[in-house]
């Protein structure tokens, strides 16, 4: 029975207290309100105890209503048309249907089944950790939309690759490995994390949409909506809010946060580049990454120009010509190198 000598921990251990916090009823509300009125000095302890209990809540995965309905159908069908002989045992032990017992009780089958199992587990593990997980690769100038098994949508930018762990749909932790740039729209799954690994960092999704760019030996994450947690070898995790851009430096893997307009960073999905607020070297870097070309400026003063507007990036030649027009410069092409002067 709760008494005024209770500490925070005592409250947390008290069954009536736990039940009140989890499922308050009129009766328990009355009881604890009276208790607090009688012992006002205990109120802070009670508040802290509530806080403790509310911290110990776990993620769960909900079944889809369709799956449950289907399962119900299966159960009700089996009840109406029994195919199995009556269960023999009365206590709660799984009684395997007859066909199962028939094969797995034979010793040689146990041996054979064990071998098959080890092999498939082994292959599964290997696939997950090495290269046989599905890998998507885009060519220069191409963008690919990928729908993952768990319902998440990934738009992979040009010259990028994404490796996806097998059976994404069933994993407790969904993982992908990215080189290049991609936009992620993550399907919400209760209790199932989504992690994007890049060479410099890992991004753990706590829900939703963001852009990751690992080009030029730095990882760059822009969060569109929701919440992600970013961590590197050298810096413990950091939680990002929408509109944050995190830049992970290649040398010491420190994370630098700045506020940006996310739209400026994911326009590549629709095959254009927004020029506002970006320096010319930044714009050139992104065109080089997209088309696999080299762009050089003959005149250093060009780099100081401020540009506004959008640039279509569907066709490399057109895009570069248009940029030249905006810059009021001439373009000389030699092989894959464009010189602006």
């Amino acid at each position: 029975m709760p008494n005024p000598a209770f500490t925070v921990e005592d409250f947390c251990k008290d069954p009536t207290f736990i039940r009140w916090v989890l499922t308050p009823t009129d009766e328990s509300n009355r009881f604890w309100q009276t208790f607090m009125a009688d012992h006002p000095h205990k109120v802070p302890d009670i508040q802290l105890a509530i806080e403790y209990i509310k911290t110990i809540q776990f993620s769960e995965t909900d079944p889809s209503p369709a799956d449950l309905a289907q399962l119900k159908q299966r159960i009700w069908n089996d009840i109406e048309n029994p195919v199995h002989p009556p269960y023999r045992r009365t206590e709660f032990r799984p009684d395997s249907p007859v066909r199962k017992t028939a094969w797995y009780q034979r010793p040689y089958w146990v041996a054979a089944a064990a071998i098959v199992l080890i092999l498939s587990l082994g292959i599964g593990w290997w696939a997950y950790n090495s290269t046989t997980g599905l890998t998507y690769q885009t060519a220069y100038g191409k963008i690919q939309e990928i729908k993952l098994a768990d319902g998440s949508l990934v738009t992979l930018n040009a010259n990028s690759s994404l490796k996806v762990a097998d059976n994404m749909g069933d994993r407790a932790i969904r993982e992908v490995w990215l080189r290049g740039e991609a936009y992620f729209d993550i399907a919400k799954r209760k209790g199932s994390k989504f992690i994007v690994h890049t060479p410099e960092a890992q991004v753990e999704v706590l829900g939703t949409e963001f852009n990751v760019n690992t080009r030029r030996e730095q990882t760059n994450v822009v969060l569109h909506e929701g919440k992600v947690q970013l961590s590197t070898e050298n810096q413990s995790s950091l939680v990002m809010k929408p509109g944050d851009m995190a830049i992970v430096s290649p040398k010491n893997q420190q994370i630098q946060l700045k506020r940006v307009q996310p739209e400026l960073y994911d326009a590549w999905k629709k095959s254009y580049l927004i020029l506002d607020g970006k320096s010319l070297p930044e714009i050139i870097a992104s065109l080089e990454d997209t088309f696999g070309v080299t762009i050089k400026l003959a005149d250093g003063k060009l780099a100081e120009k401020t540009l506004t507007g959008k640039l279509r990036t569907e066709v490399a030649e057109d895009c570069i010509d248009n940029l030249a027009i905006i810059l009021d410069a001439e373009v000389i092409k030699t092989g894959d190198t464009y010189l602006f002067e």
Binding site: F58, E60, T61, D62, P63, D67, L68, L71, K72, I75, D170, A172, G191
Partner: peptide, 19 residues
């Protein structure tokens, strides 16, 4: 079934992680 199947599913899924 209506009251407990989803709740049982959640517990079971945490335990075994296989739908």
């Amino acid at each position: 079934y209506e009251l407990f199947s989803a709740d049982l599913y959640r517990y079971g899924y945490n335990l075994i992680r296989n739908r």
